[in-house]
């Protein structure tokens, strides 16, 4: 293991459907920022980017989240290596 791998925890974040279009981004890798231990805190960090991040991930927007392909919520812990997905309520079938 390289010296900095132990302390650098990275998550992969995916965005789908209208959220992907509104954010102009399908996926990104993010070093978990200081103070981010839960999905709720991660969403707050993303909103703090401002502009469409603040509005699209803001209160009143119906956004769901999954961690490692299981549905999650604001209290779900965030840790390195996770795949985290934000998306609108589903409309299949």
């Amino acid at each position: 293991m390289k010296p900095n791998e132990a302390q650098t925890a990275v998550v992969k974040i995916l965005y789908f459907a209208w959220l992907r279009e509104a954010l102009g981004k399908a996926e990104e890798e993010l070093v978990i920022p200081d103070g981010v231990a839960t999905i709720g805190q991660l969403a707050a960090f993303l909103r703090a980017r401002g502009d469409h991040w603040a509005t699209e991930l803001g209160d009143g927007k119906a956004v769901r989240v999954a961690v490692n392909m299981d549905m999650a919520d604001a209290n779900t812990p965030v840790s390195g290596g996770q795949e985290i997905a934000f998306f609108p309520p589903v409309t299949g079938g």
Partner: peptide
Amino acid sequence: LKTRAPFWK
């Protein structure tokens, strides 16, 4: 399927 599977139209 309609409410839980991640599909979007």
